[in-house]
């Protein structure tokens, strides 16, 4: 087992996912299965293959520094469950204590 139950709990916490005991166990098993499957790739001889950082064989896709249209404030806030003074209102996340 490459991935422990603790790893799953840790990642779930970082991703703010609330998981039941059953889900936790199922995910631990599934993640390990995925890793085992991926290990098959390790059987390939990649000695002469250059490393790659991206799946697309493209580089340098740029746009010019030109200003275009923005959304109206009402449009930007349309999906916000709560708003005030043109801003989105969110629960406060305390950085200090």
């Amino acid at each position: 087992m490459k991935i422990s139950r603790g790893d799953v709990e840790h990642v779930a916490n970082l991703a703010r996912l609330e998981l039941s005991q059953e889900e936790m166990e199922a995910l631990t098993r599934q993640l390990n299965d995925i890793l085992t499957h991926m290990e098959k790739l390790g059987e390939l001889d990649t000695e002469d293959v250059p490393p790659t950082y991206h799946v697309l064989d493209m580089v340098n896709l740029f746009r010019p520094d030109k200003v275009g249209k923005c959304l109206q404030q009402e449009e930007a806030l349309a999906n916000a469950p709560d708003q005030d003074q043109g801003c989105i209102r969110v629960p406060r996340v305390l950085e200090g204590s």
């Binding site: 709560d82 005030d84 043109g86 801003c87 989105i88 209102r89 969110v90 629960p91 406060r92 996340v93």
Partner: peptide
């Protein structure tokens, strides 16, 4: 923005 936004909420400007 944290000031004057109520004790439990913040306002976001993107």
């Amino acid at each position: 923005l944290h000031e004057g936004t109520g004790p439990k909420t913040s306002l976001v400007d993107f």
